[in-house]
Amino acid sequence: MNRLEVKKTYKLYIGGKFPRSESGRVQTLTDKKGEVIANVAKASKKDLRNTVVATRKAQLGWAASSAYLKGQILYRLAEMLEGRKAQFISSLIRSGKTQKRATAEVEKSIDTLVYFAGWSDKFQAVYSSVNPVSSPHYNFSAPVATGVVGIVLDDSSTLLDLISQMAPIIVGGNTALIIVPGSLAIAAMELAEVIHTSDVPAGVINILTGELGDMVPTLAGHMDVNSISVSTDDTELKKTVRLLGAENVKRVVFVDQKKSALGPYPILDFQEIKTTWHPVG
């Protein structure tokens, strides 16, 4: 006799907890045959606002933690993902990918985490400068985290895209609020379980699933979000983010998922340059 499968409820990931949407809404995902895979949470505007609060609360502490620690935590994420590789591959296959492509994507996701873990205590040196000013001052510039960053992914985004955007943002001391559409919800929430067991402090990474239209305008117009990273070809959505983001001069970055996400530049996109002067003599 076949054993009866235990199905998982997919919820949200906010401030280190896995709550349901306060709205009680879900989105039903089906496979190609039309069979129900899961009911994923459909987060509301209120969920989003609560998540901004959790993301902000974690930011100063995360930014203040040592670069070495941030590197170790990202590396730990890679370790945990490696350990659950089979689960992620089978999950991607279930969403319609071939064995070969699913395996390649998960392996590259792990390697991307390792790659950015290594930047944690190096990008500052690459971007900093001691500036030879013409007055008796010691003057230096160094990158500092922008703050709370929203990440918006669309139906074309993959698990690898999510990780490729998340890793450079958090390694730079930002905290992230990630919005994923239903199509990516299962992979994203499985990743949340990995994050939860990888020493990532509560609130540093938060994931909401649901309809972009419900959440993106609230995110873009939120006065306590400093920056947004958006991956989409939807020109109207991009315009909306820029228009609403103008209200608090958000840094809006459009990410081309077809281009390589490696290098130090994805980190710099979410850094500010701070310059400090002090007299000499």
Partner: peptide, 25 residues
């Protein structure tokens, strides 16, 4: 973006100048 310690309003072409939050991009 710019912090002056024990000095103020010093400027130089070699020194980056730019704001955080609503002070600019």
């Amino acid at each position: 973006g710019i912090m002056w310690a024990n000095t103020y309003n010093a400027f130089d072409p070699a020194s980056p100048f730019g704001g955080f939050k609503e002070s600019g991009i």
